[in-house]
Design a protein around this nucleic acid. Structure first.
Lengths: 252, 252
DNA sequence: AACTTCGAGTGGTATTACCACTAACCTGGT
DNA sequence: ACCAGGTTAGTGGTAATACCACTCGAAGTT
């Protein structure tokens, strides 16, 4: 059961993202919002505090709470919020998912480069172990996705860069909320494991540039297939919820 | 004048980052914090709401407010907070700045690649105009830094990727709070302009791979010099606050 | 017409009270 | 001695009310 402040924040956020209040506008006063949302001012302020942290609004004492343009004022952490928000209603965020996968791809390519320069032997052996765990759950899409994300997190740690680690957190948070994504992960599970092992052996032999190129090629193809699959799912689900796994989706 | 909730949040955040409360611990109860901080519970809750949004704590109803490990629970947006926090007191965040510049470098390289594929002629001409503006303020370090950041923002827009745009926002926020950074920008102003123009002409001729390689080389050198300069500044400032601009810092 | 003043309305903080929930303690049984 | 089960103190979440600091525009003054 979501708490009142969550629902209040979701409601106001929906108004903003839906265009009811545009950047530059002022939101209704907090006292007025209590009436519109049916909660106390305490709760309204809690909700506004979240929107403020997300970079969607900025309260101005004496004037009101101004709506901002999140393209200018928000950080990456907003992506997870946007993904979750659009899921409940509205059209499926295919464009957002595309941008998100692209960001992950670009970062991953450079990440592999860094890891190739800095990874210790213990880093690499731990990564080997994680790939081994992945091989054991190639049949369970959901379990495979979490195992894959664990591998990714460990890979990031090997880069010894706090900023990259935090960025990875934000990307993972935004991705793991996407419905149907685990299916895409599962569909390529077997091949993913093979590629990871190849990648590790390249890194162990110091073939950094080759590892980077391979990562780019692999992820470009993988992301394309993921997008096609999710698109097929989101297109089919509203009409035939029970038989979502149609051949169309599989071969995409 | 900072508001009470800001000071309260800063105080609690300092306790956490300072190790007084470790991940897994519970913070003192909200009622107890009112006494420790000298503010009302409303304000305490406001501060805790911020720390929650930053991924530093997670309130658990009935139990308490638990401290988290921000390496696991926070997103990139925390970088700006960390930079600002460590500035007031503590040692200068050189390691953090290093990670931050590295992240910017990696992203910038891939960004240039994307822009090379997608930029329209109007994108490029607008970028040309911005470089022209930068040329006009090579003498004013602070103005040059903001002009440079405007160029960067426009470059990101040319990638047509919302996630990248938000990431750029987060990086810029974290960077623009760093003291002494504008000096580093100013020191390389003239050369930066030339490089940007060269970069644009490469993009106009579709030499994407070459543009990417150049970006990487340039930023590696630039970041190294920036780090050296900031290190020199932070080393000298505590002892001779009045004559911070010593020759040692300039030639670094 | 330009300027000053003032008041209605805004977000920020304080106080008090109660609710929903958790965990540990105590109690009673086996 | 042990262990289920209910009691209880303490936690974060929500509510209602009041006041403060601040902004902005309208009314009044020059």
């Amino acid at each position: 059961m979501k708490k009142s402040v969550d629902r209040a924040a979701d409601a106001i956020r929906a108004w903003i993202l839906g265009g009811k209040y545009r950047p530059g506008d002022f939101l209704p006063g907090e006292r007025e919002l209590t009436g519109l949302l049916g909660v106390s001012r305490i709760t309204v302020r809690g909700a506004l505090a979240r929107l403020r942290a997300e970079g969607l609004v900025r309260p101005e004492q004496g004037a009101g709470t101004r709506v901002l343009d999140f393209r200018e004022s928000s950080g990456v952490d907003l992506l997870a919020v946007l993904a979750a928000q659009r899921m409940a209603g509205g059209p499926f965020p295919l464009d957002l998912l595309s941008d998100l996968l692209e960001l992950r791809r670009l970062v991953a390519v450079e990440l592999v480069g860094l890891v190739g320069e800095r990874a210790t032997t213990s880093d690499l052996s731990e990564l080997r172990a994680l790939v081994g765990q992945m091989r054991g759950v190639t049949g369970d899409p959901s379990a495979f996705m979490t195992a894959d994300l664990r591998f990714a997190r460990r890979l990031v740690r090997a880069s010894r860069n706090l900023a990259l680690e935090l960025l990875a957190n934000a990307i993972v948070r935004a991705l793991e909320g996407q419905p149907g994504l685990h299916l895409a992960f599962g569909a390529n599970a077997a091949r993913t494991v093979i590629v990871y092992e190849h990648l590790l052996s390249l890194l162990e032999r110091g073939r950094v540039e080759k590892a980077r190129a391979m990562t780019r090629r692999l992820l470009e193809r993988l992301d394309r297939s993921t997008l096609a699959l999710v698109a097929a799912l989101s297109g089919a689900t509203p009409r035939e919820p029970s038989i979502a796994g149609t051949p169309t989706a599989k071969e995409a």
